[in-house]
Amino acid sequence: MNEDLDERRLWELVNRLDSRLNTVRVLAEVLLDNAAMREGIPGPYLDNIKEEALMEAVIYLSRSNEKDFLRLAKMAKLPLV
């Protein structure tokens, strides 16, 4: 019973981490698109304040992903290099 619970927690963590990694990728693509539009017309769709808020979200999610990855590695007893 305890092993089933541990495995379920492990998979929940994997799924949460995978979801957040995808979110970070999409947000990074939005930031790149916005930066590419700086020199063009009509120009970027995010002003400096919105771009900064989005970057802070990416940083927060990246740090959260790192913590969960380390937790996942520990739970799965993965060797860390």
Rank of each mutant, 00 (worst) to 15 (best):
M1Q: 08
M1V: 14
M1E: 13
N2F: 04
N2W: 02
N2D: 08
N2T: 11
E3V: 09
D4N: 13
L5Q: 13
D6G: 14
R8M: 14
W11P: 02
E12Y: 09
L13M: 14
L13Y: 08
V14H: 08
N15K: 15
N15C: 15
R16M: 13
R16C: 12
R16I: 07
R16G: 11
L17N: 08
L17M: 10
L17K: 04
D18G: 12
D18H: 09
D18E: 09
D18C: 07
S19C: 12
S19I: 06
N22H: 11
T23H: 01
V24E: 02
V24L: 02
V24T: 04
R25I: 06
R25L: 06
V26T: 11
L27R: 03
L27M: 14
E29F: 03
V30D: 07
V30F: 02
V30H: 01
V30S: 03
L31Y: 00
L31D: 00
L31I: 00
L32I: 05
D33E: 10
D33V: 00
D33H: 03
D33N: 06
N34W: 06
A35W: 01
A35C: 00
A36D: 07
A36M: 08
A36I: 06
M37G: 02
R38F: 10
R38T: 13
E39Y: 01
E39Q: 10
E39W: 02
E39M: 06
E39K: 09
E39I: 01
G40A: 09
G40R: 09
G40K: 06
I41C: 10
P42E: 04
P42Y: 08
P42L: 09
G43D: 03
P44K: 05
P44A: 03
P44E: 04
P44H: 05
Y45C: 07
Y45K: 09
L46P: 07
L46T: 00
L46C: 04
D47C: 05
N48D: 10
N48F: 03
N48R: 02
N48Q: 08
N48G: 03
N48E: 11
I49H: 03
I49D: 03
A53I: 07
L54A: 05
L54M: 13
E56L: 12
E56W: 03
E56Y: 04
E56Q: 11
A57T: 08
A57I: 04
V58R: 00
Y60F: 11
L61C: 08
L61T: 05
S62H: 03
R63S: 08
R63M: 05
R63W: 02
R63H: 07
N65Y: 01
N65F: 00
E66C: 10
E66N: 09
E66S: 14
D68H: 12
F69P: 00
F69E: 06
F69W: 10
L70T: 12
L70D: 13
R71A: 15
L72G: 03
L72R: 04
L72D: 04
A73R: 11
A73F: 04
A73K: 13
A73C: 15
K74Q: 15
K74W: 14
K74R: 15
K74H: 15
M75E: 05
M75F: 06
A76D: 14
K77V: 15
K77R: 15
K77M: 15
L78K: 13
L78I: 12
P79W: 13
L80S: 15
L80D: 13
V81I: 14
V81E: 09
